[in-house]
């Protein structure tokens, strides 16, 4: 299988590289990958080098899905589609913010593509600015904690729900901390004809401020605290949920990361933590996680 070649410039413990590898391992060699501008693009393709072993294209920041749709249309028109999978592999900013227009259009039109959002919850390539994927209370460089701020004021945009609303045959969440779950879902998605969306939670040690070795652990804590629910949807209906056996309080997830440190050191932080616990509790109820 065609994992990323070594020598790429991803940070030690890079979540993007892990996500890309799981996608590539699951999808096989008969794939064409499209990526937007961002960490994954910059770290894998400094001219004249490339870490990709499969055909890969980068055009701009906000057009991953449109480029993928164009490739799919071209292969169909030229009679070369066969079993080739076209995969978009993009970050949260490129997916949930600037690229939503093209993504929505591609899903509405029903192109046979699989789109994977690698969600590390901020614009990491430009230096950890907030995105629509940044969770409540996280300190980023554009939602910093300060005398009158506990960090980001909004919850994560519910992107999987938006994608499911397009009537896509398959929409799922996953996490790079559950590689087998992620690879199973990628395989399922690429084998389904039509547009499929995979939203992969991806802890970034640089942006979230934790030791690189703990990347997998942090992602598991997000799932075990119910802050990142794992579920599958087919044609807008939830068809599978990963149950949580021993749900942990959100503090265990938050305290492990520098971006939430202020919640534990500043007066009033406990109220913010309580709000975050409410988000987790809502997830438990809404998705039936217990």
């Amino acid at each position: 299988m065609s994992r990323l070649a070594p020598g790429h410039r991803g940070c030690p413990g890079c979540c993007d590289a892990m996500a890309a590898n799981f996608v590539l391992e699951a999808a096989g060699d008969d794939v064409i990958v499209v990526s937007p501008t961002g960490c994954l693009e910059v770290m894998t393709t400094p001219y004249p080098e490339s870490a990709w072993e499969v055909p890969w294209i980068h055009s701009l920041f906000e057009n991953t899905a449109s480029v993928a749709a164009g490739i799919e249309s071209a292969l169909k028109a030229l009679g070369r589609k066969g079993n080739t999978k076209i995969i978009g592999l993009a970050g949260d900013g490129a997916t949930m913010d600037i690229g939503t227009l093209g993504l929505s259009g591609a899903f509405e039109r029903g192109h046979d593509i699989t789109y994977v959002c690698i969600d590390n919850e901020a614009y990491m390539n430009t230096g950890v600015q907030r995105s629509g994927g940044t969770p409540y209370g996280a300190s980023t460089t554009t939602s910093p904690t300060g005398k009158k701020s506990f960090g980001n004021r909004t919850q994560k945009k519910n992107m999987p729900a938006i994608m499911a609303a397009h009537g896509a045959p398959y929409v799922t969440t996953t996490s790079i901390s559950y590689p087998k779950d992620m690879m199973r879902k990628v395989k399922k998605a690429v084998d389904i004809e039509g547009p499929c969306y995979i939203h992969a939670h991806a802890p970034c040690s640089t942006g979230w401020r934790f030791e690189s070795a703990r990347t997998v652990e942090i992602g598991k804590l997000a799932v075990e605290t119910a802050l990142w629910p794992l579920y599958e949807m087919e044609y807008s209906e939830i068809t599978g949920v990963k149950k949580i056996k021993n749900k942990k309080p959100v503090e265990e997830y938050l305290k492990a990361q520098g971006r939430f440190k202020h919640l534990f050191t500043r007066e009033g932080g406990e109220k913010e933590i309580a709000k975050i616990q409410e988000i987790a509790d809502w997830n438990v109820k809404h998705y039936g996680l217990e």
Binding site: S59, V67, G70, I71, A74, L75, G102
Partner: peptide, 12 residues
């Protein structure tokens, strides 16, 4: 035009 980037690169 973005779609044509992909399509043209694919040989169309």
């Amino acid at each position: 035009l973005s779609a044509l980037v992909g399509a043209s690169a694919a040989g169309a």
